[in-house]
Design a protein around this nucleic acid. Structure first.
Lengths: 102, 102
DNA sequence: AGATTGTATGTCAAATCTGATATATCGTCA
DNA sequence: TGACGATATATCAGATTTGACATACAATCT
């Protein structure tokens, strides 16, 4: 199982907070994935709260709907950078970000 | 001035919190850079607090000293992902991360 | 001075990520 | 049922990032 696949599995199949050690993720790896999941979850929540479609958010970000879908799915090909940029575009504040992460 | 250069300038020449609008950064762009600066600054602080050299941190991360130097310099070729992984390897907690960001 | 230790900077091939496109799925409404 | 709007998934060429390496710089020793 390559690391792409492994991360995809980890990111999709397991809920935030569940221990993912047994599929071979190091502590930092799983903590990092948790972080990504928190961000992608908040992205979806915030987008829906603002009644924005994926297409609209994509336009705001200068990207495509499919990439927004992947962001919200915490796809392994999506970086934290991209997630943060998306949240920032939606007007999320530093304080809110902090809350999401903690 | 290409965007790589512009970001490098922005990241290196300007302190956290200073308004960088006049060099043409959008609000999200500068907020994103602020975030990176906060993370890279904390990385250096935390590394030094733990009396770890760049070489040692590089080993922990499975990378090279030069890349650690670039992380701490908030080099534009360094992603937030990489900064976060470095902080996590140093044992920084979610709460601490939240504090860094907010 | 020379040696040593820690950090900075430039470059590059290989790996990864990005936006775009195509297509599929799902719900809802006429 | 079919059309429509929203979201999901697969793929890919081009762009960016990565680790590694070489080398330079700075401070601190003997």
């Amino acid at each position: 199982m390559d690391s792409q696949k492994k991360k995809a599995l980890a990111a999709k199949g397991w809920k935030v907070g569940s221990t993912a050690e047994f599929i071979g993720l190091s502590s930092e790896e799983s903590r990092f994935i948790e972080l990504k999941l928190a961000l992608s979850g908040s992205l979806r929540t915030e987008r829906l709260r603002q009644d924005v479609t994926q297409v609209e958010l994509a336009k705001l970000l200068g990207t495509s709907q499919s990439r927004v879908a992947k962001m919200e799915a915490a796809d392994p090909t999506v970086t934290v950078d991209l997630l943060l940029k998306a949240l920032l575009v939606l007007g999320v504040t530093k304080k809110q970000l902090a809350k999401i992460i903690a």
